[in-house]
Amino acid sequence: MAADDTPVLATRGLTKRYRGTEALVDLDLEVAAGEVVGYLGPNGAGKTTTIRLLLGLIRPTSGTAQVFGLDCRRDAVAVHRRLAYVGGEASLWPGLTGAETLHLLGRVQGQVDDAYRDELVERFALDPGKKVRAYSKGNRQKLILIAALMTRADLLVLDEPTSGLDPLMEQAFRLSIHEARDRGQTVFLSSHILSEVEALCDRVGILRAGRLVEMGTMAELRHLSALTVEATFAGTVPDLGAVPGVTAVSLDGRTVRCQVRGSVEPLLRVLADSGVTGLLSREPSLEELFLARYGAGADPDPVTRGDGASRGD
């Protein structure tokens, strides 16, 4: 494990350009030991580029990337001894069976918890006797998930790891990540499944067009976004449009719906003086936060776009 004050993962001004296209720009990121960090962004935002830089598979154009205090590119072998990676596209050797693949990847990694591997095979309902070419996409994904988790590596780097898994297997994955966190493992999770990130992660970063536009705990992110408030009045409906921080006021009979940024105190004072008979407030979901950051940036009040999480593309 890294020393207490050394982040498990740290990037400074990390930038990657491909022939004039900026895939990632000035990424400053730190992940402490034992953290589970989510990494969100639309397609092409730079998530996979970030992960390939962290794995040393590609070189940064500028900036630095360190894992366990070591340079990701120069000290790749030493870094890789302590991390395990799962990609969203399981490209494996079709002629090998599942058991052979797990054996190979475990031996190459150099550390495997055999008992845990067997438990994972059972948990993910994988038939290891089959050849990889006979597996469905979901089963191939399970195979690389097991191959990563069975190592009990200090750092798990996961790039859309549940791609192709059914909801039951998604639950098995979440259980496995909870176990990893309980053991003190660090997890860096890039995902399109917002409910998954919301359920698993301590902190979330949102990437857009190669730039990190948000980074914080769920509470911190929510604080930056609007709160939806719905109030029903017994008598005259007050004019809430003039209250500081209140926007997007709409009226339906005696019920007012609005959004509040910053302190809710001014609104509460007005409501208290106006004979409120019912009051509902709701924090934004991660999907709403994500859409607020990603949704073209044109809508300042995106919180009312709906709730619930869904699989992104």
Partner: peptide, 14 residues
Amino acid sequence: ASGRLDNLLVRPVS
């Protein structure tokens, strides 16, 4: 080209 090499190079293989 197929990405199969990734499986090795993300492990302690130079």
